[in-house]
Design a protein around this nucleic acid. Structure first.
Lengths: 194, 194
DNA sequence: ACCACCATGTAACAGGTTACATGATTAA
DNA sequence: TTAATCATGTAACCTGTTACATGGTGGT
């Protein structure tokens, strides 16, 4: 057993999804899609790479389930040590993630290209925010169990909604300033790709 | 000269800062601090690693300035090819950055720890947003030149402000739901680290 | 006949962080 | 005398992405 280490955020996310429930790597991919995907997005290969490591450090245990006509399923469960490690990670102060926002980079250096290009980027960003807003609103409308886990999940959706609304407000403000005046409305709506 | 490639976002940021101005790696670190740092944060070693690569691909040129008692200064300028590459990058569609938000991970899996721990994280996140809000507000108050570059920089600050306000609103909502009722005010304000 | 789903991974690479290494100058 | 500033970088490491590899089952 490898020396126990502090968890990375992605390991914590996987362990979090393994609490109280046995899952395979494949299951975890889908669990991620259905839960944390809009604020944490480990890819398949990363998941398959981390699971054996969690076993090595004693934070998870693996059980093989033979299957017909396809690879054995490797079912993972969190161990006591894993739960303790996850708790430690949850209690540890927030680590600063490096900020990354390509949209702002493109806007910041946008003096080198036309305002039309900037508008395209702003539109794209707004569209992304609107998709997220709709997605989260739909989930919020579903019936929720009255557990702390459900309450916390609702908190994260609330964050996503506030973010989406902020982006939409920003995009509208920028559009007001960059778009041609209302008289040229038709031109704007039908403008070509040039 | 190495084959010209499409730029990475960090290369684009550096080239953007080299437009119309010769700078050293050291200068660039500080230029980053003063401009793009809240949405793009290349570290020193990354900057020093990328500059030679930009020269190799013909996107920047280097001029050595001897100095007394310290290493030569390597001054970089963007080339025509570099400007074209930067323009291409600016015009290219936005690439999806993987989402990463440790605060939401901690909240999402927060059922395993006490609400007090969650509140600490929420407070920390709000404090960060408040710092950013103050910082950007102060810059907005400074006199701005009426250039497109200044206008675009203002757009990015506006984004940061909307983000900060969104986080603050979210934090307040979560605090309202998690904090003890007003009658226990004194206990809350003085609560220990346990 | 084709595509999505189930189910596992590996290999090569790119991007980025942290710590290390060096050393003079200048202000408190 | 201590610390910040100026000025360069390298080395080891970690995280993550993309493409590749395999192959049966079940629906349209």
């Amino acid at each position: 057993m490898a020396a126990p280490r502090e968890l990375t955020a992605t390991e914590a996310a996987l362990l979090g999804l393994l609490v109280g429930r046995e899952r395979s790597g494949y299951d975890l991919q889908h669990a991620v899609e259905d839960s944390v995907a809009y604020f944490w997005t480990p890819v398949k290969s990363r998941i398959y790479a981390l699971l054996p490591r969690l076993v090595e450090t004693g934070y998870a245990r693996r059980r093989d389930v033979p299957q017909a006509g396809r690879p054995d399923k490797h079912m993972y469960r969190i161990t006591r040590a894993g739960e303790r490690a996850l708790k430690r990670w949850l209690e540890a102060p927030l680590t600063e993630e490096p900020e990354r926002s390509p949209i702002l980079l493109k806007v910041f250096f946008g003096a080198l290209v036309s305002d039309d290009v900037l508008l395209e980027h702003v539109h794209a960003q707004r569209a992304k925010a609107e998709r997220l807003r709709e997605h989260l609103t739909r989930i919020d409308a579903e019936p929720q169990r009255p557990t702390r886990a459900a309450r916390n999940a609702a908190f994260t959706r609330r964050y996503g909604l506030e973010w989406a609304k902020a982006v939409i407000r920003w995009a509208e403000a920028v559009e007001r300033e960059l778009e041609p005046s209302p008289r040229t409305e038709r031109t704007r709506r039908h403008r070509s790709r040039s």
